[in-house]
Design a protein around this nucleic acid. Structure first.
Lengths: 342, 342
DNA sequence: GTGAAAGCGCTAACAT
DNA sequence: ATGTTAGCGCTTTCAC
């Protein structure tokens, strides 16, 4: 293994000082163009590569962004990450990724690792059962920006990036009502998570605004997993007065619920209209295709990364920007179109 | 922003040398137990965190694994990454992730970034159109282990991790033949990529072994995207002698192809039986459910990361282990079960 | 079992 | 426009 070329080696060969080499390589304006050129060439020729550790050690910066997600392998998260990677990469930042697997303990451990890795900033989508944000305090105390996206929580020093979940759920529910549904069940996740509690609110508001009663017994709370969808369908099938519409807080659960209902002989949307949330690829495969909320994962990832990098460049202040809301739309497909049947 | 605690601060407070502190914190055997204990306590109390840059600079190691994937947001890749993250995290390694977006140029750029970031090792799934492996030579020259997984290529100094694509495709095709198919179309991707050329081989061998003719005109090569599936279906619908079976090299394409065929009035599996590849979640939603090859993404990620870490710990040698093959199985579902119809 | 000293490679203050 | 100097925080000889 041959020795690494350093700026000293280049300096010696060219008879200049290491400082000049360093400056040239960083494209410092106060270096003569010719000198710069010469240094570039020599560096390439000698196979020089900058030592980021020395540089980081000196600059006390890492050019690294930390990311903590519940799971990497969901269509939404992987799209968001794809968007972040693109932005971060273009801006010269590395992305360090870790998953909490929906477990606060792991999330805390990951946060600590990120802290020790001295990330310049942190992007977080919270685990299912995270309640306290104490594990992010070390970052905040050190003025390391923390941005939450999708699964967010209120914190005076953090920015949140999300869609208007209340409005989206309101649109979804209103749509079901427009289609003639009178008894709409809502399947929701952990109500401590903003995304789910807001969607429940939107559902409730839409009912109220349309003079429909809101009943607790029509709200099913579970983990929104594939299995949970099957169980929810069974609960629905066992209900005395069957609903004529279902609004589910995510597509995975909506799809498995639909499948189970269909197997039990229910016709969709005739007997029960269904609306999901996320616009996962699945929604265009299930029959009938699932009406859903288009959740812009990739864009959310881009925005999150871009905002963080802005903060890092001092172009804006995390503590001031509180919330960034992205647009989201209802995509109407056959699973909810009762009107089309007539 | 308060100043960071260093080992010097701890040393001073305890009246020992920085060396001892360093050793204690690294659990060096030659440090007195009591001293160690005292140092641990003080460190925690002072909120000490190790400076990885100083340490890396000194040790010339980074504890970081680089990962280059075509895209982050495919069910297979995100599962694989989830598996890698788990293993890497448990072993105390960070994962730096970047995507080539199926573009060699970006892959080369990413490889360079990884090289400059001095990753200890590299995990790679190649882009669609990568042919030369020159951009990995810098790693190989520096004895930095490179492991390819899924989309692999032969290189004397790299390990490949994959499933037996030939065998899997052979099983898939044989299954169609057993179901009575005589004219089987194969939809494939870029034949420069091992995964696709091997699957084509398996298809071909199965035909030959069952005395069925192999015809070039029955092999459709495209990008295996959702759109490509629609086009492929149209090609099939336009064929003079229609096939009675299709073996597609991935599920996304298989599903959209199926959808299109169904819309055109074809009955599946009666008119045409279909088999996909990957076992994406989609396959259990499309109707009829898609027969496919179970591709163990999560496990492949785990194995890839674990192997790399083994190499890094000197427990094995990349240049010796050439190929690690994982088990894969045919999952039979209704899309191919003609026999069930009778 | 512990410590002194040197140096990993880079950059920023200061000087020229 | 360029150079001198010092130091970022850690680990590792080597010495005791």
């Amino acid at each position: 293994m041959e020795k690494e070329t350093t700026i000293y080696d280049i300096a010696k060969r060219l008879g200049v000082s290491p400082t000049t080499v360093s400056r040239a390589l960083n494209d410092h304006p106060a270096v003569n163009k010719n000198t710069k050129q010469k240094i570039y060439e020599k560096a390439t020729q000698m196979g020089y590569r900058s030592n980021m550790f020395a540089s980081n050690l000196r600059k006390q910066r890492t050019n690294t962004i930390g990311l903590i997600v519940p799971r990497l392998n969901s269509p939404f998260q992987s799209s968001a990450i794809a968007g972040m990677e693109k932005v971060a990469n273009e801006a010269g930042y590395n992305l360090i990724i870790s998953q909490s697997l929906e477990n606060v303990q792991k999330e805390i451990a990951n946060a600590n690792t990120m802290f020790n890795s001295r990330v310049d900033g942190l992007l977080v989508s919270l685990a299912y059962n995270t309640e306290s944000l104490d594990h992010f305090e070390p970052f905040i105390n050190k003025a390391i920006p923390v941005i939450f996206y999708d699964r967010v929580a209120e914190h005076k020093s953090c920015t949140n990036i999300l869609i208007d979940n209340i409005q989206a759920a309101y649109k979804a529910t209103s749509h079901l009502i427009e289609q003639g549904c009178k008894n709409i069940v809502h399947i929701s996740g952990n109500l401590n998570r903003n995304v789910y509690s807001d969607r429940l609110k939107g559902y409730k508001y839409a009912l109220i605004d349309n003079d429909l009663p809101f009943e607790d017994s029509f709200v099913i709370t579970n983990t929104l997993s594939e299995e949970a969808g099957i169980e929810a369908a069974q609960q629905i099938l066992a209900m005395d007065s069957k609903p004529d519409g279902i609004f589910v807080s995510n597509d995975t659960c909506a799809v498995s619920c639909m499948k189970t209902l269909k197997q039990a002989g229910m016709s969709i949307p005739k007997d029960i209209a269904v609306v999901g949330f996320n616009n996962d690829p699945l929604t265009r495969v299930i029959e009938p295709n699932l009406t859903t909320i288009d959740y812009p994962g990739y864009e959310m990832g881009e925005v999150a990364a871009r905002s963080l990098i802005h903060f890092l460049n001092g172009l804006s202040d995390v503590t001031i920007t509180n919330t960034i809301t992205l647009r989201s739309d209802l995509i109407i497909r056959d699973s909810s179109l009762k009107s089309k049947l007539s």
